[in-house]
Design a binder for these strands. Structure first.
Lengths: 132, 132
DNA sequence: AATCATTTTGACTTTTACGTCAATCTGGCA
DNA sequence: TGCCAGATTGACGTAAAAGTCAAAATGATT
């Protein structure tokens, strides 16, 4: 476990550009500390970046990712706000469950597509690719 | 089962704009037939639209959606092309499985977030919301 | 201390996926 | 046949999410 990461270390680890990371900082999603001017990313910053990229893979916008990340923050003291968070958690959960259904459907169709290809290859007397 | 749908019927059913549907047509993802100038959408067109929107929900770009839809087409006759499709099916499958892991992780974190809220509410003596 | 590679900042540009608006064109019906 | 709601086309506009480039600052190294 390292203490700090430089920006380029993170760009290499996660295959994103420095511009992207700085953009997320501008958007308030990460707040690396500074030594002089240079950014130093702590474990927590690295983890946040990881979470952001996960959100991106799932097709969430920056605004949505920001909203999700706010749910993780330590719960506020006001009842209305707490209830609001719980409500948003439920909404996100539904969205995620929809996405999961979408994935399962799509996976099923990919299976069919592959099978059709393999069938066609068999008809042509073509050997299917073996890995290795 | 209807024979044809008008564009506005589809905009209502799927909550998208006519502009969006026309955009997908421009991109070659749908090809409704025409009566004069007006578009008529068959069941198959409606199904394609459904698939496109599913892809969007999963965060795929138009280009990716186009690629996915090409995998569904009736398999070509050339061995190299067949193998290429099979390869791309595998790639997509991996992406989808990654997304599924992402979803499961995120769902887990949402559970924690909700629990933290409920705990906090209990501390405050606030009644959790009951549906109904 | 000079140099060289990084980093930062700021500004401008680009791509994607549509939104918006105006003008034209129908198809159906009173 | 005249009208009108709905559809089409084309052009331009825009928000999001970065990409790109230049200039200045910094840090490490010889």
């Amino acid at each position: 476990m390292r203490d700090y990461y430089t920006i380029t270390e993170l760009t290499r680890e996660f295959d994103v550009s420095t511009r992207t990371i700085r953009f997320y900082e501008d958007e308030g999603l990460i707040s690396p500390i500074r030594r002089g001017r240079t950014r130093l990313f702590r474990q927590s910053d690295r983890q946040l970046l990881k979470n952001i990229l996960r959100g991106k893979r799932l097709g969430f916008s920056i605004a949505e990712i920001r909203e999700i990340m706010q749910m993780y923050r330590s719960p506020p003291g006001e009842a209305g706000q707490l209830r609001a968070i719980v409500r948003r958690v439920h909404e996100k959960r539904e969205q995620l469950e929809q996405k999961r259904r979408d994935i399962d459907e799509l996976l099923g169709e990919l299976d069919s597509a592959e099978e059709a290809c393999l069938t066609r290859m068999a008809e042509l007397g073509v050997a299917p690719k073996v890995d290795g």
